[in-house]
């Protein structure tokens, strides 16, 4: 049993290697939003690498309005009991006590998420202070690096959650990968220092990204994936995996669509396979055009 397996005395926990390492294990996979233990089982059965436990999917948060907060711990517990894959949960931007609660519950990853109503307009959570790893959203490279500097062990491009519209996800992943390419081409130290100032992060972090040509943590895509082709598109644009929220459980046949999105994420370069799994999936979530969402109701600009 678990209680018999205890690490050696030298076993250190909550290290950067362990935090970023779990994200490495999720690569090439799909993380699905679920609101019930039944959803969580459908997601696991479809091949999800993790689930995000929340009370409402982003499309319903958007429709409901009001203040969106961390989910009920009881509900998160029931989902943790239902599946063996990692369970993530969301806290509000800057709400470090919600994060403490989620860590105490024992979730495997915390998403400090713009989908919930921000709690602090000045500070994000100091993520280095936690043993549990964090994933954060970003619209461009500077935002991604600020989050990493604060301790995010995984980044997801934000997209516009709950829309079933891929356009913002594409914009954001392109901005991140273009930003990385630009850094790699800069070369001169003086230019890297200027970028560090612009992005408000240490120059060492800028140098590392310029040298490696990639972020120092895993990069997933989120916000608007509704079809297998959407999932493969984001992988071809440089995502290392996908978060899918409303796109699965707001569709006509969630179990089939979930599996099809997993297959398309695995074999994102195989158009024949993506075609095959896209056949007869039933209706996708209806979706929203960006223009129909007033600026004040957009989620991606939350955080900075």
């Amino acid at each position: 049993m678990a209680s018999q397996s205890t690490p050696d005395k030298n076993g250190s926990k909550g290290t950067w290697t362990l935090k970023t390492g779990l994200a490495q294990m999720l690569k090439g996979g799909v993380i699905m939003d679920v609101v019930t233990p039944e959803h969580a089982k459908i997601a696991e059965e479809a091949g999800a690498v993790a689930v995000m436990a929340l009370e409402r999917v982003p499309a319903d948060i958007r429709a409901a309005g009001g203040v969106a907060r961390m989910s009920d711990p009881d509900m998160i517990h029931r989902i943790m009991d239902a599946v063996t894959i990692p369970v993530m949960a969301k806290c509000r931007i800057g709400h470090f006590v919600e994060a403490q609660v989620l860590e105490a519950i024992g979730v495997d990853y915390i998403d400090e998420s713009e989908v919930l109503t921000p709690a602090d307009l000045k500070f994000h959570v100091d993520k280095h202070a936690f043993k549990v790893p964090f994933v954060c959203g970003a619209r461009e490279l500077g935002e991604a690096l600020r989050r990493i500097h604060e301790g995010a062990a995984m980044i997801r491009s934000k997209g516009e959650a709950g829309t079933g519209n891929i356009v913002e996800a594409v914009t954001h992943i392109r901005a991140i990968t273009d930003g990385i390419r630009e850094l790699s081409d800069l070369g001169l130290m003086a230019k890297l220092e200027a970028k560090a100032e612009e992005y408000r992060v240490p120059v060492e972090l800028i140098q590392q990204v310029a040298k490696d040509g990639k972020l120092p943590v895993v990069l997933f895509c989120a916000g608007g994936i509704a079809t297998p082709a959407d999932a493969a598109l984001m992988m071809q644009l440089g995502a290392e995996g996908n978060f899918v929220g409303s796109g699965i459980f707001k569709s006509a046949d969630p179990a089939r669509r979930a599996k099809a999105i997993v297959d398309a994420t695995t074999h994102f370069n195989d158009a024949k396979l993506v075609a095959e799994v896209s056949r007869g999936l039933g209706e996708a979530m209806r979706g929203l055009s960006l223009e129909s969402i007033p600026a004040a109701e957009r989620l991606a600009p939350r955080g900075w």
Binding site: T6, D8, G11, K13, L18, M25, Y109, K131, V132
Partner: peptide, 30 residues
């Protein structure tokens, strides 16, 4: 998941005789 969830993940030095006398630093994640 024998050691527990992610917060119980750990790093440790292992004695692995087939690899020689130096300890092997091992990363255990869930």
């Amino acid at each position: 998941n024998a050691f527990g969830r992610q917060v119980d993940s750990f790093e440790a030095d292992l004695d692995v005789p087939v690899l020689g006398a130096d300890p092997f630093h091992a990363v255990f994640i869930r």
